[in-house]
């Protein structure tokens, strides 16, 4: 009985972590679907979300919903700027994929080290003030807190919103068209550059939301906090089949739950290594991910 409730408790924690990974993975998968590039700096946009949240709470002490809204707008604009300044010029030159990837690595390092300057965020760990008191509810088998509930609801709502956006609006239709065939989308009159910017902003907003939620759940922030969640979320996107929305969500949950279980039952220092082991196994057995159908043969 004791073990069972322990397992259930870890499962709840895993779902919480997985929800955050899912939010980040969506940004990766959308950008990859449209541009076939890994936006390496996405994890840092996630980090900025947490920092924006921190400053909005401590300096301006705004109500919670405004904190979320403004931080998400902030990260959306950051993602927009990154795309505009760093990636667009390269696309104009039709540079190879690897140059885009190296640029993305550069952007990622730049954001991390620029914001870790002492005059900005500093490289230290900062305690994140929770905007509300933590309450926990004992449900006999496991304990659930209002943080869990907040993360579940926020993720659920944003997933529904995203689905609506992608499958029910013109904008979403244009995004899907672009993902299918960029040249053809251009020919039928879709303003591809605008759609690309929009996709980056959407991904940025979701990552920003993930950033604040993560900071509320694990209340310590640092400029390098985005690196590992960023990479793990990318792995999540690959697991689900990159470019596929529901795949990224499922992948996020798989990664989150397995990470929590590995640190609970094996060793917390080995969890990062374990995630990469999952990636290797997956890439070998199902290189197109869980939901991927298209086999790319070049």
């Amino acid at each position: 009985m004791e073990t069972l409730s322990y397992i259930l408790q870890q499962l709840i924690n895993g779902i919480q972590l997985g929800a955050v990974y899912a939010l980040i993975a969506l940004g990766y998968t959308m950008v990859y679907g449209i541009l076939r590039m890994i936006n390496f700096a996405h994890g840092d946009v996630f980090m900025l979300g947490a920092f924006f949240g921190y400053y909005l709470i401590t300096k301006l002490s705004l109500p919670v919903y405004l904190v979320f809204l403004l931080a998400m707008i902030g990260t959306a604009l950051t993602a927009f700027t990154i795309e505009k300044i760093a990636y667009r010029p390269l696309r104009k030159k039709s540079a190879p994929n690897i140059s885009l990837l190296i640029t993305a690595v550069g952007v990622s390092l730049f954001i991390e080290y620029f914001f870790s300057l002492k005059i900005l965020f500093s490289p230290d760990y900062i305690a994140f003030p929770r905007p509300f008191e933590v309450e926990s509810y004992d449900l006999k088998f496991f304990v659930i807190t209002n943080i869990h509930i907040l993360i579940f609801i926020a993720t659920f709502l944003s997933l529904i919103g995203l689905y609506f956006l992608i499958y029910k609006t013109r904008q979403g239709k244009a995004m899907r068209a672009l993902a299918l065939d960029a040249e053809m989308a251009k020919l039928v009159g879709i303003d591809t550059e605008r759609i690309i910017s929009f996709t980056f902003m959407l991904g940025g907003a979701l990552a920003g939301l993930g950033g604040i939620l993560y900071a509320i759940a694990y209340p310590q922030i640092n400029v390098f906090m985005g690196v590992m969640p960023g990479i793990k979320s990318f792995i999540a996107a690959v697991l689900g089949g990159i470019g596929i929305i529901h795949g990224a969500v499922l992948g996020g949950f798989i990664i989150g739950i397995s990470e929590v279980f590995v640190s609970a039952f094996l060793s917390s220092t080995l969890r990062d290594g374990f995630i990469f082991l999952i990636l290797f196994i997956f890439l070998l057995l199902r290189p197109n991910g869980l939901f991927g159908k298209r086999i790319e043969k070049v």
Partner: peptide
């Protein structure tokens, strides 16, 4: 610590200039 601010910028500029 500015080193690691400058280095990525160099990397990005090289990639833009000569992909």
């Amino acid at each position: 610590e500015l080193r690691w601010v400058i280095i990525p910028v160099i990397l990005i500029i090289i990639m833009m200039w000569k992909p």
